[in-house]
Each structure stands twice: as structure tokens, then as C-alpha cells.
Design a protein around this nucleic acid. Structure first.
Length: 286
DNA sequence: AGCTCACCCTGGACGC
DNA sequence: TGCGTCCAGGGTGAGC
């Protein structure tokens, strides 16, 4: 992903760095929607089927000729509705990127290219191939998906109920469990718990109601902040790798082990929970 | 029930 | 310079 220079069609896509979580996928949805809605899929070139699950052999045959009528997001999935109740589902995994317009600067690992009427092209690039692409008429194929954290359903009372039903899980694992709450990955779970002043390794069932309840606004706020910075920096970015800059600077704990807490100056600690890097301030978080 | 770990995969960081 | 090794991580599934 790189600066646009040819002055042809606009280049939009996910940031060049970072693992896509809710804000990244939602930003992607907002930015590609105007370029693909109403467009007919003229051709689909599947160059590499071996993603997390192999791309079905008949994907191209089933998609070509259909028109993209809407672009939605559910959890970290992007759903391109192609009529007839069919959803073209794309998950970016951890290195997946989607862009419309000019091809990505680096054409390696471009696994799928869709040609749209009007001359636009949609590129799916995913070096690590942890992504997913399928066509389904049943959203239940995506598995059990929990509450959207920015929705009204994700309330203090709802989170409290989750902690009653899953008392022994760590609060970080609970926030990242897609069956309970969707779209929250490692970065935002760490950041939200910092903002809530709670250690990631705390057992969900041992938190007070007040502690549980302050996670909700903390998580919503960090997601909104990320959404705002991504939204503002994506559409007209010019630097080779400047898109992530703004949000990375605002991270309080993630990937900051050994650095000073921005609130109290204490050295940020790193542990591992569920096999994922976990960061917290030993003073601000209790 | 819920933990840890392995797996899928590659680029980047690091050590020699 | 260049090669080998390690690591990250979303989602899923196995085993404890």
C-alpha cells in the first residue's frame, strides 16, 4: 500500500500495518463501499486458494455477473451483499488487506482480484494467508458471534451478565472471546483494560460490578478513537506508511513493554495470556 | 468450563 | 552480506 501517484482511480484500503480489528474493518467498509456498491463483478481471478480455509473452487463462477448491492461489517468480517441473499464474506486474518483502484504497491501475495464494471478493481492481498473468503447465504456460517461492542446491546449490564456466566476466565480473554463480544483483538483489549484501570489477568468473576461497568465506556471510547483516526487518515493518505502513525502514537500499553507509562511513568510490563502478548501498567491497573 | 498449546504462514528482527 | 532462528498473531481445535 503506498501513496497514490498515478492520479487515476482513488486508492483506498486498509492500513499498511497492524492487525485488523473492528475499527480497521469498519474503516475499510466505509472507504470501499462507495467504490463497489452498484458495481457488477465482471471477472474474479483467484490466484491462491490456500487461505485459512481454501477458497471454494466455484467462488468465481458463483460471483461473476452479480452486483454488489451493499457492504456491511459483522464482527471482523466484511460482507459484500451480492443479491439473492448471498454474502461475499471476507476476513482479513492478521495480514489481509483490501484495496480498490490502483493495484497495491507490492503485488506479491495478491490472492484475489475482482474486476468490476466501470473499470475498478478490488485487490485482496494477504501475505500470511490467515484470511478467509467465502460465499454464503447464511451468516451463521461465520460461527457464534457475540455483541457488537459499539452497539447499544453492549451495555454495562450485559457485560456484567457475561462475567456472571464466565467467572473464571481472565477479563482479557473474555473481552477477546468472539462468541461473547466481537471485533476486539489484542490491541484494543489491552488498551481498554488500561483505560479501565484493570489488570488483564484478573478473573472476570472477581471484579466488582463497578469495575466491570467501567470497562464498557473504556472499550467503546478506545474503539471510537481508533475509528476516528483511521477514518481521517485513510482516504487521502500520501505517506508510504503514515496511516498507522496517528493511532500508534496514542497507544498507552500495547507493544510498550519496558517503556514509561504515559500516566504515572512506571515501566509497562508484558506477560502472556492465551498465547498473546499482554501489556499493562503495574501501578495504574489493579 | 477453561486453560495452554499447536497449527496455519511469512516478514521482520536479531545473532553470529 | 547472509544465513539461520525466533516471534507475532486471529481463529480453531486438541488435549489436559
Amino acid at each position: 500500500m503506498r501513496a497514490l501517484s498515478t492520479g487515476r482511480s482513488p486508492v483506498v484500503g486498509a492500513p499498511g500495518a497492524g492487525v485488523p480489528e473492528l475499527p480497521e474493518v469498519e474503516t475499510l467498509r466505509r472507504t470501499i463501499a462507495p467504490h463497489v456498491i452498484g458495481r457488477r463483478i465482471l471477472a474474479l481471478d483467484v490466484r491462491e486458494r490456500r487461505l485459512r480455509r481454501p477458497i471454494a473452487a466455484d467462488l468465481a463462477a458463483r460471483l461473476v455477473g452479480r452486483t454488489i448491492v451493499d457492504v456491511r461489517r459483522r464482527a471482523k468480517y466484511l460482507l459484500l451483499d451480492v443479491g439473492g441473499g448471498l454474502h461475499w464474506v471476507i476476513h482479513l486474518g492478521m495480514s489481509g488487506r483490501l484495496c480498490v483502484g490502483d493495484p497495491p504497491a507490492d503485488l506479491s501475495h495478491v490472492h484475489v482480484v475482482a474486476a468490476l464494471d466501470g473499470g475498478g478493481r478490488l485487490y485482496f492481498r494477504d501475505p500470511r494467508r490467515f484470511g478467509l473468503m467465502l460465499l454464503t447465504s447464511d451468516e451463521r456460517d461465520l460461527g457464534v458471534l457475540g455483541l457488537e461492542p459499539l452497539g447499544d446491546g453492549f451495555s454495562p449490564a450485559a457485560l456484567w451478565q457475561m462475567t456472571r456466566r464466565h467467572r473464571r476466565v481472565t477479563v482479557k480473554s473474555l473481552l477477546m472471546d468472539q462468541r461473547l463480544i466481537v471485533g476486539v483483538g489484542n490491541i484494543y483489549a489491552n488498551e481498554a483494560l488500561f483505560d479501565a484501570g484493570l489488570r488483564p489477568g484478573r478473573r472476570a468473576g472477581r471484579l466488582s460490578r463497578a469495575q466491570v461497568e467501567r470497562i464498557v465506556p473504556a472499550l467503546k471510547a478506545v474503539l471510537h478513537r481508533a475509528l476516528a483516526s483511521r477514518g481521517s487518515s485513510l482516504l487521502d493518505y500520501r505517506d508510504a506508511d503514515g496511516e498507522m502513525g496517528e493511532f500508534q502514537r496514542s497507544l498507552r500499553v500495547y507493544e510498550r513493554a519496558g517503556e514509561a507509562c504515559k500516566v504515572c511513568g512506571t515501566s509497562i510490563r508484558r506477560t502472556v495470556i492465551g498465547g498473546r502478548g499482554t501489556f499493562f501498567c503495574p501501578l495504574c491497573q489493579t
